[in-house]
Amino acid sequence: MDYFLQNLINALQWGSFYAVISIGYSMVYGVLMVFNFAHGDIFMLGTYIGFAIATLFIAVFSALLPTWVIFAAVVIITMFLASWIGVFVEVVGYRPLRQAPRASAAITGLMIGIIFETGILIFLGAKRLSFPPLMESHVYNIGGVYFTNIKVMVIVISLILMLALHGLIQKTKWGMAMRAMSFDFLAVPLMGVSINIIAPLTFAIGAGLASVAGILYGQAYPILDPYMGVLIGWKAFVAAILGGRGSIKGAAMAGYLLGFIEIFVAMVFPSTFRDLIAYSIILLILTYRPRGFFGMEYSTKLRL
């Protein structure tokens, strides 16, 4: 039992990252119908920004302010800065290609991602960085189940973020505009909602979320390297589409599902076969639920 509970906590932590990152994917996908292949690298860049801000704050304010204030400040400032990366990617890579085939926009995204990776490598060199701990780590043991305060924090903050985003999308005017846009992006601009505002906003929110995920990631897996976003980005892409188009709830659930599958497959089967079995399960899920979890029907005809 404790073995199962231990892995449940492991899976919740790991799934949280997939969930938060794939939500950013899913929003762009829902509103603009394009794959944002730069998202994994936006996550990477967000983590590096978080690293810079955190290092600065710890150096300057660690004696003056309590830990949680520093933590909150780092999160907010990083989110703000990182959201501009999202805007940048939209304006440079996606806006000129709005009338183009969707795949072409995906390729520009992919290429912007490669530029980010190489840029960091040139700028900071081959050295890997270690994310400074924003709070002291404590290990707790309850009945043989081990967890740290960081694990709990990751899970809780991810849930808060997702709920806040859900509120934003469901309750505010901006959220309504986004939902409308994802329902029919040809008709909505005619109603006076500018796609040139909604699209960057979507990218910015996605990038902001990714950067928070990056800070949490830096606490849980404190090693930064320029290629850290590649694999996690492609996996979040799987989760985003698996969740169904334009469904935040679906993307979050698919993210957790992916985390659970990866952790529990390694628990039950020999871990050598993890990827083989995990992705076969995804293939099976899609065979029987070809529309994903919460996907809606396409209202407008797909472009190429």
């Binding site: 892409f237 992705y279 076969s280 899609l286 070809p290 396409y298």
Partner: peptide
């Protein structure tokens, strides 16, 4: 029809 091919094919590559 749709984008599921993208992720099924990606899963295939991992498999």
């Amino acid at each position: 029809r749709g984008d599921y091919l993208a992720i099924i094919s990606l899963a295939f590559m991992f498999i």
